[in-house]
Design a protein around this nucleic acid. Structure first.
Lengths: 349, 349
DNA sequence: CTGAAAGCGCTTACAG
DNA sequence: CTGAAAGCGCTTACAG
């Protein structure tokens, strides 16, 4: 039974059929769990399969059946700050259904996107997830028309296309943060938002505003600022400015963990305690949040779940479910840590 | 010419052949850039292809030709700290050769790895990149034997297998850091290493030790410490302890940017200047490095290049190049920033 | 240089 | 319930 090392003649469905004394059609039916196979024959085929170590060739199956069990993630940024977690969700969903996922990185370049799309379509992918790895914004359709291939948008959204877009509920996340600060007794809440050109900043501001209004707590316009960038440096500068006011805020809500990192430093530098003098809440729940001094209370983006939902929606569409234009907002979660409910005050030594 | 929306009968090679009045064999030759086709016929085929908007079916090609133009990345951690950059390198290399890349996440579970491997082999992938997203260590072979499918290890390494492993040159990276600190005149250099159970910490310690010895600068054992974890908190604690010494270090080299972040905080808290009193160097060059106060000099891991090399090596093996057991170390790069050559001292206000 | 024929390994109607 | 036949869309020897 020794076989030439690499030529180890693959065992095919024909081999199984001939050994089990059935037709390949029958083997195929057994493999695909079709009901119309006798119990005895089924068992014989199954036994033969394991005895021969037969494995179906997905490529052949794909050619004949016209579905490949493959989806693709097409992203504009493979190194985006949220890319991994989103991808993991998609991969989890796909894996559950024995679907494989292809990866394509367009770098946000339409020409590259077109190339990838072409290759992916040539490869007969069953569907596509078009994903931004870092920034929610509207986008036009795919760089190539996809008349026969379902797709969904993830962490970005289409404007006219009849497909779902999976997004975080940024507004709701900000509401959570605001309600938490109000609940722990803060009344002078500052907001360090991200650059106004980023769409999420509008949603987060809206959530904060609505929650404050609902609670009857006024929001001082002087304490509501857009940072020029998302960098900690800007969080530092804006927090420092707020702290210099005659009546400084007793809480600062930042639209990102990075901004919050800067805010924490500014508060420390002034010798104020956290959360005693100033409570701080971030947004995103990146891994650095938990390592801040004190650990940062923050609003967690539901990235994994978003990826899962995107995957499930796509799979459903592949199975024939009708798609329509809709924005699916996934709830954020508040992660309460010491920067708002600190064990004792966290004052600089 | 209106076509029923979804049934838009695909144009196949047969259509092209019949319109161009040639055989499908000839179309295939043109498509695959075979030399044995007349110039005139070639042109006619090409014209027909664009006129009909023909696109080859990769699945059919794969079935017949026995190579699918697909590789897979199998990782134990899709959210590993270095996963994205490594993947981007692989994707870049693959894309260049018109090869697609599949993504598979085993979560480090052998059973899951086996499942993925099985699915990937059924799918007839041409090759595999087996990658760790966060930690260099030796590993046994794939959870399933791969007699006919080439693979390479990335950011981890095999022990016996006749395949290459792509790794960073951690030792060399530490040499760069040490030489830099010595060059700017530091003589009492502290080293905050990562947990001893992490293999890279041995390499980085060796690099530091060798460089110091070569320069004739003594290394005080009291200033060489393994942190219990990679977290900033531990960097803080160890730096703080070193600074409390009668003769504190004038430079601290940290085996990760996270540790360095903690060290920076400890130095600030003591009211010392950076780099005036103490210079700091990190390792990894994560995005947070540049946002430290002051921006952190650090040793950049060559992740993108590692991914590229892994991809290229794999593609070469797929093309038939012989593989052997080898550890391929890619050079790190020193990124000099203000924490060692700061514009003026960076003293706390 | 060109084409007729076979075949990659499956699944799909369809007949019995 | 089972099988013979056709065919998915290509590429590969091979003959001319």
């Amino acid at each position: 039974m020794s076989s030439p090392r690499s030529a180890a003649a693959r065992v095919t469905m024909r081999d199984v059929a001939s050994v089990a004394k059935v037709s390949t059609a029958t083997v195929s039916k057994v493999l695909n769990d079709r009901p119309d196979v006798g119990a005895e024959v089924r068992q014989r085929v199954l036994d033969t399969i394991t005895r021969l170590g037969y494995r179906p060739n997905t490529v052949a199956r794909g050619l004949r059946s016209r579905h490949t069990g493959t989806i693709a993630i097409l992203t504009d940024d493979l190194e985006g700050i949220f890319t991994n977690a989103l991808m993991r969700g998609v991969e989890d969903a796909a894996s559950t259904y024995d679907v494989s996922v292809l990866l394509a990185n367009s770098y946000g370049d339409p020409e590259r996107e077109r190339k990838h799309l072409r290759r992916l379509l040539d490869r007969q992918v069953d569907g596509l997830i078009i994903m931004s790895g870092n920034r929610v914004r509207p986008r036009t359709g795919p760089a190539l028309p996809l008349p026969d291939t379902p797709y969904v948008f993830l962490y970005e959204y289409g404007v006219g296309q009849a497909v779902p877009s999976i997004l975080p509920d940024d507004r709701g996340g900000a509401v959570l943060a605001a309600e938490h600060l109000i609940e722990i007794g803060r009344r002078r809440i500052g907001f360090i938002n991200g650059p106004a050109s980023w769409e999420v900043t509008a949603d987060r501001l809206e959530g904060l505003t609505d929650a404050m209004r609902a609670a009857g707590v006024p929001l001082d316009p002087a304490f509501v600022r857009h940072a020029p960038s998302w960098a900690p440096e800007d969080g530092f500068a804006l927090a420092d400015a707020m702290l210099a006011a005659a009546q400084p805020p007793d809480a600062i809500f930042c639209a990102s963990d990075d901004l919050a990192t800067g805010a924490l430093a500014a508060i420390h530098e002034r010798g104020l305690s956290i959360p005693g003098d100033v409570a701080v809440v971030g947004f995103d729940d990146r891994s650095l949040a938990v390592h801040q001094r004190p650990p940062l209370t923050t609003v967690a983006l539901p990235l994994l779940e978003m990826g899962l939902v995107a995957g499930q929606r796509l799979l459903a569409a592949i199975d024939g479910e009708a798609q329509q234009h809709e924005l699916i907002r996934i709830e954020c979660q508040l992660r309460v840590r010491a920067s708002t409910v600190g064990a004792a005050a966290f004052r600089r030594p």
